[in-house]
Write a protein that binds this DNA or RNA. Structure first.
Length: 879
RNA sequence: GGACGCAUAGCUCAGUUGGCUAGAGCACUUCGUUUACACCGAAGGGGUCCAAGGUUCGAGUCCUUGUGCGUCCACCA
């Protein structure tokens, strides 16, 4: 017999339990031997901040999968790690410096980098500690960082391989430039903000034949052409002509060109071409050999050489240009239009497209090693049918609908700009000496070589995550026969990883890039399945943000309600890929459940003792019933978990634990106490603790520790429904129906508690069954004092009457005639409604002929049942 | 402009290939402290399944159209 506290207090146990798991190496796959392997690479949290609900959801789901597979006996590995998050981390440190009244230039390169590294280290320690708080059973001995030595080796190896294959190229192109971050951004890092903007239609000068329209007239200072649609009759004849114009005091040379992409109906149908500051215009300039005039510099200001405009910000220049145009009366129209402002996804600063010498990954280069396919095509095919058509190497996305998004993105993918002008990150592994260039894993030994000062887009290194994390040291990563090889047992055991579980918001940023980079570098898929979870929103469905003040901190939830409740609230009640709304009440609800489970266990452990070797037989109907329910539960939960139906399985577990076990079987057990019963209770408890463990590892492990077990629950094996067969039966369902009917009738009649009530049940062919359960029927909070069960008898007038199928139940001793009449009338109305529906169905020839036979039979039986009930109720009402 | 998703009880959502009286949690009403649990127990109320058509013996479920909301991608200068 055990003494347990009245309610479960997570704080008393969680840290202790986690330490126990860790100190017993329970997270390591090394001692597990199995042909079945299971592995997940944890999406590495950024070392910029603290754990948020998105992380918590990720951890809850991944830990659930990992613990489930581990208990299934698979050799299971979950590799944890963190991401250096280049721009984000540097920006954060710069902000801190600003608050301290200094900046990176004052500090100098070395000191600045040290500051970032120190910050990253501190941030890392915080977040790792928080990952542990949520109960994550990942193998910390294999922890990785996107910027550590081993991952650096992977990055440089892949870079070199790509460079040698001609996939990485250096080019002067128009890129997305953030004047605040002072760096390039990839196309995916550009966000759009809808706005209303003034839209000016004007002529460059009064002699120029065509008016153009723009929301950014200041950029027209950099125009070298005007493009019109070659089919446009208004301008057709002007194509090919050149003009010298005086635009706001600046001399421009403009050529009229024809381009079929120009929309004749938009604005004036003519477009001022600004090659240096627009992607589209850049392409037109290339095709038409136009001059490129650089107008805006990297600070977002106008370059020297533009007279009064030089040094102005773009905004100032715009204002001035409009002023001048107005003075000269060149503006034909000024209107407000809807348009999209490009902004930096990190700092919301408007993007300035400008030409710059950068490194790119050419996604459209046909590769010999892929039989002429491009890396983009390979990445596409791997989700459609498998790696180079190999069906065993196909990646499945759950939920499936995201596959369409993936294909759409992949097909529209342009070259990926990978160089960034920030200090924190993987420095581009390219060295220069005068005109020479060297690309390699290490720089040349001789003097005079200097390394490229740019760093790589953070997604370059995280794109290698699944395989780079399976290397333990830099030497494990090699280039052999034109591919990257990871020479470790971990790689051989665990790659491709089983599942990539992450939020759908980084499907493109990260998941798609992992597929591209991995299929290219190691010529295999990074993972078999992709499971995408949704975003965690506040209870109103809005994104959580500090400025809105609607942030729910998972660690605060953990403190208040426990890690288990927090995890459950993120797993149950949300569909894969769907956003989930979370409120504190929901977490509190699951705290209530963990306490319920605690008390279920407390009752069993303190009132019953396991006897002998724990074997038992199904003695009573209730025993057979609970064993049947348990067997079904194990089967269904296992099946659901295999299909990633975490929410559904969790709901089934909750229903079983609370509604079946606690509300019925435990109540029954109070009246049927025996050694055999005790053993059944222990048996069922063990099953549900195991089934619950992946969801709520702490409370289940604590309870498990109170049972006589030689292993901790984390190391136990998953219930195997096939190995233990017991006699099962669902006959007890009828008893439950009966008890409920009695309770209902009694409750509605509000019988005074003092009155003695006798129940008389005419049970027909169920007489024997009912008789065997007489004691229970009386005891299970039915409020009756005695019960008499007969096969049949006369109806009893002026007493409470109810029925269950063919069972007729009379409660003798007290009746409120008004209430009873009301209740019976209601029953009759309901029954009549049902009968008319079913008889309508059955009189329909088509239904009888075409519907499955079973269904028709079932409906006939139902009709018979309802009719006999109706008859009984009607008679009772007459009396 | 292209695509996707959602619309079911007051709220948050389940509802698998069409087939029991459309379910759960929270909230609500009434009753109840019977030695696991008030973070509890019992009983109950509450839904024209967004609208209109269509397919079918049968539609919350499939098809078409529409409305409202949300998301992603592209982007017009």
């Amino acid at each position: 017999m055990k003494e347990l506290s009245k309610s479960y207090n997570p704080k008393e146990h969680e840290d202790r339990i986690y330490d126990m798991w860790e100190s017993t190496n329970s997270f390591s796959p090394d001692s597990l031997e199995s042909d079945k392997k299971f592995s997940i690479s944890m999406p590495p949290p950024n070392v910029t901040g603290t754990l948020h609900l998105g992380h918590a959801a990720m951890l809850a789901i991944e830990d659930l999968m990992i613990r489930y597979r581990r208990m299934q006996g698979d050799k299971t590995l979950w590799v944890p790690g963190t991401d250096h998050a280049a721009i984000a981390t540097q920006a954060k440190v710069e902000k801190i410096l600003l608050e301290e009244g200094t900046n990176r230039h004052k500090l100098g390169r070395e000191k600045f980098l040290k500051r970032i590294n120190d910050f990253a280290q501190e941030s890392h320690d915080t977040i790792v500690n928080q990952l542990k708080k949520m109960g994550s059973s990942c193998d910390w001995s294999r922890e990785a960082f996107t910027l550590d030595e081993t991952r650096t080796k992977a990055v440089r190896s892949v870079f070199k391989l790509m460079y040698d294959d001609g996939l990485i190229i250096r080019g002067d192109r128009v890129v997305n430039w953030c004047p605040k971050c002072h760096s390039t951004l990839s196309d995916d890092e550009v966000e759009y903000k809808a706005q209303r903007a003034p839209f000016y239609t004007f002529k460059y000068d009064k002699d120029f034949p065509i008016a153009v329209s723009s929301t950014r007239p200041e950029t027209k200072l950099g125009d070298t052409a005007v493009a019109v649609n070659p089919k446009d009759s208004r301008y057709k004849e002007l194509i090919g002509k050149e003009y010298n114009v005086d635009f706001c005091g600046q001399k421009l040379k403009l050529k009229i060109i024809g381009d079929r992409h120009v929309d004749m109906d938009f604005g004036t149908g003519a477009l001022g071409v600004t090659p240096a500051h627009s992607m589209v215009d850049w392409k037109m300039a290339e095709e038409n050999n136009l001059d490129v005039v650089k107008l805006i510099n990297e600070d977002g200001n106008v370059h020297e050489g533009f007279g009064e405009f030089s040094g102005m910000t773009a905004k100032e220049a715009r204002k001035r240009v409009v002023e001048i145009l107005k003075e000269k009366e060149l503006i034909e129209k000024e209107e407000e239009i809807d348009n999209n402002l490009s902004i930096c996804y990190r700092c919301d600063t408007p993007i300035e497209p400008l030409p710059s010498l950068q490194w790119f990954i050419d996604v459209n280069k046909k590769l010999d090693k892929f039989k002429g396919k491009t890396i983009k095509e390979v990445a596409n095919q791997v989700v459609r049918e498998g790696f180079l058509g190999d069906k065993s190497k196909k990646i499945n996305i759950y939920p499936e609908r995201f596959e369409k998004n993936y294909f759409n993105w992949m097909e529209n993918l342009g070259d990926w700009c990978i160089s960034r002008q920030i200090l924190y990150g993987h420095q581009v592994p390219v060295w220069y000496k005068e005109d020479e260039i060297y690309v390699g894993l290490e720089g040349p030994k001789e003097k005079g070589w200097t390394q490229d000062t740019d760093t790589l887009d953070t997604w370059f290194s995280s794109g290698l995550w699944t395989f780079s994390t399976l290397a333990q040291k830099p030497e494990d990563i090699k280039i052999e026969n034109g591919r990257v090889v990871v020479d470790t047992d971990d790689f051989r055991n665990f790659h491709p990883t089983s599942v990539m579980e992450t939020g759908y918001d980084i499907l493109f940023f990260w998941v798609a890039r992992m597929i591209i980079m991995t299929t290219y570098a190691i010529e295999d898929i990074p993972f078999h399945d992709i499971y995408l979870h949704g975003l965690v929103l506040d209870e109103k469905g809005k994104k959580m943000s500090k400025s809105k003040g609607n942030v729910i901190d998972p660690l605060v939830m953990k403190e208040k309600y426990g890690a288990d409740a927090t995890r459950l609230s993120l797993v149950i009640g949300s569909a894969p890929g769907a956003d989930m709304k979370l409120s504190e009440e929901k977490v509190a609800g699951f705290r209530n459940f963990s306490n319920k489970l605690w008390n279920i266990s407390r009752f069993i452990l303190s009132s019953y003792e396991k006897s002998g070797d724990g074997t038992f037989v199904a003695e009573t109907e209730a025993d057979k019933w609970i064993l049947s329910k348990t067997e079904k539960l194990v089967l269904e939960v296992t099946e659901d978990l295999d299909k990633y139906n975490f929410s559904k399985a969790g709901e089934k577990l909750r229903e079983f634990s609370w509604d079946v076990l606690a509300d019925w079987y435990l109540e029954i057990a109070k009246f049927e106490k025996s050694d055999n019963k005790a053993n059944i209770l222990y048996y069922v408890l063990e099953k549900i603790l195991k089934l619950w463990h992946p969801y709520i590892p702490f409370v289940t492990e604590v309870i498990w520790g109170e049972m006589d077990s030689d292993k901790s629950l984390i190391n136990e094996s998953w219930p195997d429904e096939k190995s233990d067969k017991h006699e099962t039966s669902n006959q007890f369902d009828l008893i439950i129906e009966t008890v409920k009917a009695i309770r209902n009738a009694r409750s509605v009649n509000k019988v005074e508690p003092a009155k003695k009530i006798k129940a008389i049940i005419y049970a027909g062919k169920n007489t024997e069954l009912l008789k065997s359960q007489e004691v229970l029927i009386k005891s299970l909070r039915t409020g009756i004092d005695s019960v008499e069960i007969k096969e049949s008898g006369e109806e009893i007038k002026n007493e409470i009457f109810t029925s269950v199928g063919n069972l007729k139940i009379y409660l003798i001793g007290a009746i409120d005639m008004e209430k009873e009449k009301e209740r019976i009338s209601k029953e009759i109305i309901n029954l009549e409604k049902q009968i008319s529906i079913i008889s309508g169905k059955l009189s329909n020839k088509n239904f009888v002929e075409r519907a499955p036979e079973e269904l028709v039979k079932k409906e006939k039986e139902r009709l018979k049942g309802f009719e006999s009930e109706l008859k009984a109720f009607k008679k009772q009402l007459e009396n």
